[in-house]
Nucleic acid binder design. Sequence first.
DNA 1: AATGAATGAGATTTCATTCAT
DNA 2: GATGAATGAAATCTCATTCAT
Lengths: 240, 240, 240, 240
Amino acid sequence: MGIQERKGREREARKALILCGAEELILERGVDAVNMEDIAQKAELSTATLYLYFSGKDALFKELCDSNTRRFINTVQAQSRPGLSALEQIRMFWLNYLSFYEMSDEHMLIMLNMRRYIAEAFRYISPPEESPERNSSTSAFLYGMIKGMIIQGINEGIFDSATDPDISTRTLLSLFLYIIECIAALPKAERKTLQSIAEMKKVFEITLRGIAAEGVDRSLLTLPELKQHGQEEEEHEKNI
Amino acid sequence: MGIQERKGREREARKALILCGAEELILERGVDAVNMEDIAQKAELSTATLYLYFSGKDALFKELCDSNTRRFINTVQAQSRPGLSALEQIRMFWLNYLSFYEMSDEHMLIMLNMRRYIAEAFRYISPPEESPERNSSTSAFLYGMIKGMIIQGINEGIFDSATDPDISTRTLLSLFLYIIECIAALPKAERKTLQSIAEMKKVFEITLRGIAAEGVDRSLLTLPELKQHGQEEEEHEKNI
Amino acid sequence: MGIQERKGREREARKALILCGAEELILERGVDAVNMEDIAQKAELSTATLYLYFSGKDALFKELCDSNTRRFINTVQAQSRPGLSALEQIRMFWLNYLSFYEMSDEHMLIMLNMRRYIAEAFRYISPPEESPERNSSTSAFLYGMIKGMIIQGINEGIFDSATDPDISTRTLLSLFLYIIECIAALPKAERKTLQSIAEMKKVFEITLRGIAAEGVDRSLLTLPELKQHGQEEEEHEKNI
Amino acid sequence: MGIQERKGREREARKALILCGAEELILERGVDAVNMEDIAQKAELSTATLYLYFSGKDALFKELCDSNTRRFINTVQAQSRPGLSALEQIRMFWLNYLSFYEMSDEHMLIMLNMRRYIAEAFRYISPPEESPERNSSTSAFLYGMIKGMIIQGINEGIFDSATDPDISTRTLLSLFLYIIECIAALPKAERKTLQSIAEMKKVFEITLRGIAAEGVDRSLLTLPELKQHGQEEEEHEKNI
DNA sequence: AATGAATGAGATTTCATTCAT
DNA sequence: GATGAATGAAATCTCATTCAT
């Protein structure tokens, strides 16, 4: 049993390694330009071996996407505290989004860049029907988290009571995804992280204001800035 | 002279025919699953013949995209009247968007579904630099139209003076594009047009409210509904 | 009858025009990179029309080759005087070769560059069997001219009596052809005409000495230089 | 280590096999008429497989050419002894040329027939600049070998002191190449090996005499004959 | 478990040539 | 006589996937 377990863990570790390499390649070249051979080479394996770990290209890509989404969800959940207000939650969510984006080797990009490869990917139309339980698909789970926050916000009176939680959730997700996709489409060198972040912030603030209840103080609907790391200071300067 | 002109027109007509078929195929199967042979077959031509009209696959796809964007722009411009307020313009724009979406054989989908194929496509980050003159690239032109409306809105006091016109434009375009892309990704049968439209409407209203000046009457920020066609009535009912 | 004749002449003129354009293209791009469409376009005709004048691509190319060879032969024959010694003839031949090469819009290159396209082209092995009459193939005629000169040289005692006229002819032709081919393979800009000519001269002198009778004064075996045109003077300087 | 080595050798062997088949095809049909599919079929592989061994058609052809040139060089070098006079060397070179031509399945033809495919191929004009070291391109190396022999001949007084070593080298190479090319252009059946060889011999003797110093005894400038096999004998010899 | 080798199926593109008008 | 339009046939190359070892 112990052995079996270890084998299992080793297998997972190897899978993770492969995915990690694939990710890097995708970030460098874009999804379309990455093929199984490239991925194998990056992992210092043969193509044939990939098929021992993944049933095929689509499965590999889907798993890559899922694993990143899961990682993000875990990060968010780790910081979630009961008793937070909707706004506090949303701010926390936002901060995690930013830090995940910045600090996680751009896993974010991957997660989103790959939408095309995933049958059950986020769909603007037709929300996932399942309840947001942990065992449902990772994207459905994310959807549920956001929707939950919005509903809470409506209940707390901060969001307009006429707000449709599903539509708002999807609006937010759309923006998440689309922004990231656009960034991912840029050559790696041109991705001006801080400028992007500033822009994202504004976009989300627009949306928050858009769903806010009438009369709510706009200063409440502001998202916090991510405190800057040293090496990015000059670039930061440029963007003021 | 006359003859040359006619030949030219005929040629254009045949190009349009090819593009039309390509469009249909893309709508049915998704861009990635369409190849030159399919397009040729649809047009009842040989692949070789396609190359008489388009220098290659990319050129064909780009032209398809451009032609639809152009068509949309023309529709909008045809209805544009001087002296309209920003809100009136935006409403008009919205109505055109809807009717184009509904009535134009889903050209819209195509226009947007193809973003991936076009180097100079809408980029969330880095707005097109050119002034919005007619002869600039079609997407830049569209960008300029929207930005112009937003600026006008700021000047007229309807939009928050702190609004960044570029960012707002890109937010709007992002939503346009993303929604459409998601719809296009659905199998043709599942595309619930009216539900989509209802959803789009709400999304845009959220955005309008998000950039509105504080204190502006929200009822002004409402978009008109598209009056329904007969055959879609039952479906409409369902979605209320 | 007059009419028929005129038609015939017009037809020939048109053919010449087409060939002329083809030639230019080949000189610019190399044989392999020229296709029927290019040729048609150059002649401001449709591809279909080319087939009214030539039975196909090979026929066109063959005719182009022949016409240039014929032109060269005519030039040489025009200067040929009875009573010339073998050496005088060879010198005359050489001068014509040079001036044809330099002055005739590089028809020479064409003539030779196209060897590959011509079934009955110069073959080192297996000399053309036909007697060198005017109506035999142009290349056989050229072959005969050179061979005639060599035989005359042998008879006049200037060339070694053990010389095999056929082999020597073919040696000379080989060098002619090969040099020219190599020049033609260079991009147009890099063809250093004068350097090439100087080199050709030496090569032919080597050959002449190689077939000369023992004891013949070497100064007799020298080829004259081509007197330079004005605009090429600087380049000439460089090559001294 | 051992394994890796063996795999490497096996790979090389298979490459050689492919090249060998390609060679045969080229000899049968001429370079232009051979395509990747033919080569694959000959090797009893799929076209796709070829691309595992060669990055493309050009690479394959270039390698074929190089490998034959290399083989020739090796043969020559194996017989090279220090202290040989220029003439002895040239004779040795010549014998190798002959025997290589005769005994090596016409690798020679290939080596040369393919000039057109190779950018850095022998160019009559502009000699390769590099010193004739082993690691320079194979053709440059060959060039250097010949030039070295000529220079030595000049120093030894056997060749005319006015001889330009570069031009003479190129003259010789031209003849090598051109003869072979012409032979290769013949249908396989028509290639009269022995007649060709006799002819080649004379051609080279002409050239030697052409560059010889005045007064050198002509009998020294003679190349040895290849001892003749009965026509059927060569076939037999090949198998030893 | 790993892999070297192989491949089927397809994609894009080119071009000489034909034919109805 | 001229041509616009069309095409068959081929050529090069790519890639996810399989299989014997």
